[in-house]
């Protein structure tokens, strides 16, 4: 579903190479985790996949559902079903959460040539998902993420994800800022989206999220490339032994 081949990428207008020959193949239906020390390129990978300005691909390729992902604008990637749960979700002052999300849902449907959701349909769906994630209805009226706590912002990311029903999900440090109860709620949401035609890439520094979202494969990212791959047990080993063994 997502095929990354020998990808290299730089930031600061080429001043720093962050991804350095990264290859990864994530078939539909699988959940892969990427773990690695700080500065390994985890967040850069999430931004390169979603097309953020300032992250320049200098080599390699990314194929997403048979298309060249790197040719697409960020909003085209989103409409094609690619979703990033941000490590630091942005505050959008003055735009109520529901307005934001309804605009996003309908823009994606329109881009796919599908019919837009009516206001009652949208509201019904939003209320149900908010209740599942224990998000107070009052929060949905407030400007998106403005004044929300770290944990609330992460929960709001999952709320958006469940509303948008993406095909491929990248989660960047979704566990940071979450207490155990919140993590369970978030993991239940993510697990509910696991399906044979959906892929996921879970980026995390710590193993604990992977107790709740059990991956099919775990990859260790060091210095911009995959240093080792294994099953879920690899995460436990990393938690016990740290990343020192991979030091250059």
């Amino acid at each position: 579903m997502l095929k990354i081949n020998n990808l290299t990428a730089t930031v600061n207008e080429g001043a720093m190479t962050i991804l350095n020959g990264l290859s990864l193949d994530i078939p539909a239906g699988e959940v892969h985790a990427i773990m690695g020390p700080n500065g390994a390129g985890k967040s850069t990978l999430s931004y390169v996949l979603t097309g953020r300005d300032g992250y320049d691909v200098t080599g390699g390729s990314v194929e997403y559902m048979g298309k060249n992902l790197l040719d697409m604008e960020p909003e085209e990637r989103a409409a094609a079903g690619l979703f990033l749960s941000f490590q630091y979700p942005l505050e959008i002052p003055g735009v109520p959460t529901m307005t934001f999300l309804r605009t996003a849902v309908n823009a994606q449907l329109k881009a796919r040539g599908a019919e837009e959701l009516s206001a009652p349909e949208f509201l019904k769906k939003a209320r149900k998902i908010a209740a599942d994630l224990k998000i107070k209805p009052d929060m949905l009226k407030r400007p998106l993420n403005v004044g929300f706590s770290g944990g609330e912002k992460k929960r709001m990311e999952i709320f958006q994800m469940m509303m948008l029903e993406p095909k491929f999900i990248v989660m960047d440090e979704t566990d940071s800022g979450l207490d155990v109860d919140a993590m369970r709620i978030v993991a239940d949401g993510v697990n509910a989206l696991r399906s044979p035609d959906r892929g996921m890439l879970v980026i995390t520094h710590y193993q604990r999220l992977l107790d709740y979202i059990v991956p099919d494969k775990v990859h260790v990212l060091v210095a911009g490339r995959i240093a080792e791959s294994g099953d879920a047990d690899l995460a436990k080993k990393l938690e016990a032994e740290g990343y020192d063994a991979y030091a250059a």
Partner: peptide, 26 residues
Amino acid sequence: DESALFYMRQRGIPLKEARALLTEAF
């Protein structure tokens, strides 16, 4: 805010619409 614009585009909102929405809120 470029970061906010990218965030909105990542959710599928086209650039022009994202700019309009942020400006309107302002």
